[in-house]
Design a protein around this nucleic acid. Structure first.
Length: 272
DNA sequence: AAAACTGCCAACCGCCCTTGG
DNA sequence: ACCAAGGGCGGTTGGCAGTTT
């Protein structure tokens, strides 16, 4: 099916929004809600396509939009989440209240990416994957392993930062220890939701020149009542952390890696 | 002072996914 | 099961503002 371009209809305005248009859109949505975006501009009396209205509302007019520069904590969260999620801007935005995917994407491309590149160049020995990957093996494997030294990237982070805003109430947590190569499954509702990575992954990952190999395998347990903590203070001291993933990883679980947390001697990964 | 360059960001585009008939 | 419509997402771009030459 080939969809006609959204603004194909003649007479629809494009480009920057005027103040009056903003006012019309805002007051209409406040009164009636957005309902059907395609129908909205007509009902509101705007010469815009619904898609444009939706974007304008979501990225700019929404009352809960946070204005102003990103804080250090927000930037660190973006960097960390991007390392885990890749270019899933909406998923990253979901963890930063008041920030939009578009804004985060812009900040990444114009600021954070360069910063990371700089930081990497200053560490000639560090090799970082250009695109984070997570691979899941066949469902029979029970070993979950982690590699890729995230600490390489966060060595310079301010580890005194306070907690992030993310609510942990509906997360389940994954604890990553570092010894026995066993999954404790008693707390896992369904093992089908667990990402499982087998040994072959590491050899595959090693094919990618830029993907560091694994130095140790990890014990992963899951529980539902662990607190979400942030940031990830000094965890590189004890744990060679990695996460390589690809889009297939989302299947059936929509991603359980959220934020890494260090608690005493373990690392937690939290689901969202 | 002005032209050239660079960076930033709002907005657009096109594809994919979901939903409902 | 199929199709169409709507919504959502990520990539890209155009234009403006700031900086450099």
């Amino acid at each position: 099916m080939v969809r006609a371009p959204c603004c194909e209809k003649m007479g629809l305005k494009k480009g920057p929004w005027a103040t009056e248009e903003d006012q019309i859109l805002t007051s209409y949505i406040q009164k009636h809600g957005h309902g059907n975006w395609r129908a909205l501009p007509k009902q509101a009396g705007l010469l815009r396509c619904g898609k444009s209205c939706r974007l304008r509302w979501i990225n700019y007019l929404r009352p809960d939009i946070k204005r102003g520069n990103f804080t250090i904590e927000e930037e660190e969260t973006i960097i960390k989440l991007h390392e885990m999620l890749g270019n899933r801007w909406s998923a990253i935005a979901a963890k930063l209240p008041g920030r939009t995917d578009n804004e985060i994407k812009n900040v990444w491309h114009t600021n954070l990416k360069k910063r990371l590149l700089k930081s990497d160049q200053s560490k000639p020995s560090s090799k970082r994957a250009t695109k984070p990957k997570i691979k899941r093996s066949d469902s029979n494997s029970s070993i979950i392993t982690q590699s890729e030294p995230a600490h390489l990237r966060f060595r310079e982070m301010d580890t005194t930062s306070t907690a992030c805003n993310t609510s942990s109430s509906d997360f389940s947590s994954v604890t990553v220890g570092d010894s026995k190569n066993i999954i404790k499954s008693e707390d896992i509702e369904s093992m089908e939701t667990m990402p499982v990575i087998d040994e072959s992954f590491w050899s595959e990952a090693a094919i990618d020149d830029e993907t560091p190999t694994m130095s140790s395998q990890s014990l992963i347990t899951i529980s539902n009542d662990m607190p979400l903590q942030y940031p990830f203070a000094n965890y590189e001291e004890t744990f060679q952390q990695s996460h390589a993933y690809d889009s297939n990883f989302d299947d059936g679980m929509d991603f359980w890696y959220d934020i890494f947390t260090r608690t005493n001697d373990s690392i937690e990964l939290s689901e969202f």
